[in-house]
Amino acid sequence: MTDPNTSATTTTSTATGKGFELSALVSTGGPRIKLSTFTVTCTATHTQTNANWTFGGMSGLTNPPNPVPASYVSPIKKPDGTALANAVFNIQNLPGDGSVGLTMLRIDFLPASGISGQVTLGHTSCSPTP
Rank of each mutant, 00 (worst) to 15 (best):
G117L: 02
M58Y: 11
M58A: 15
V88L: 06
T39E: 05
F55P: 04
L25I: 07
L105C: 02
T54S: 15
D80R: 06
A112F: 09
T2M: 09
N63H: 13
K77W: 02
T82P: 04
R106S: 12
S71P: 09
T45E: 11
V88P: 06
P64S: 00
T37V: 11
P95L: 08
P79R: 10
I91K: 15
K34H: 12
A112W: 05
G19M: 06
A24L: 14
G19N: 15
P4Q: 00
N66Y: 08
A51F: 09
A70C: 06
T124L: 05
T6K: 07
S59K: 03
T82K: 05
D3H: 02
L61C: 01
G30M: 05
H123K: 10
S113F: 01
S99D: 01
N93Q: 11
A70W: 09
I107G: 05
P79I: 04
V100W: 10
F89P: 01
V26P: 05
L121H: 08
G98W: 05
L121N: 06
S113E: 00
F109K: 04
S71I: 11
T12G: 08
G29K: 08
L110D: 04
S74Q: 13
P75F: 02
K18L: 10
S116K: 14
W53T: 09
P95C: 02
T11M: 00
P64W: 07
P4L: 00
S71V: 13
T16P: 11
M104V: 01
T82I: 06
C42L: 08
S127Y: 07
S116R: 15
C42R: 03
L121T: 09
S13I: 10
T120M: 03
A85M: 03
F89Y: 08
M104K: 00
E21A: 08
S36V: 07
N66E: 10
G56I: 03
T54N: 14
W53I: 06
N52K: 08
V119H: 07
L94K: 14
G114Q: 03
A8S: 13
A112T: 02
T10G: 05
S127D: 05
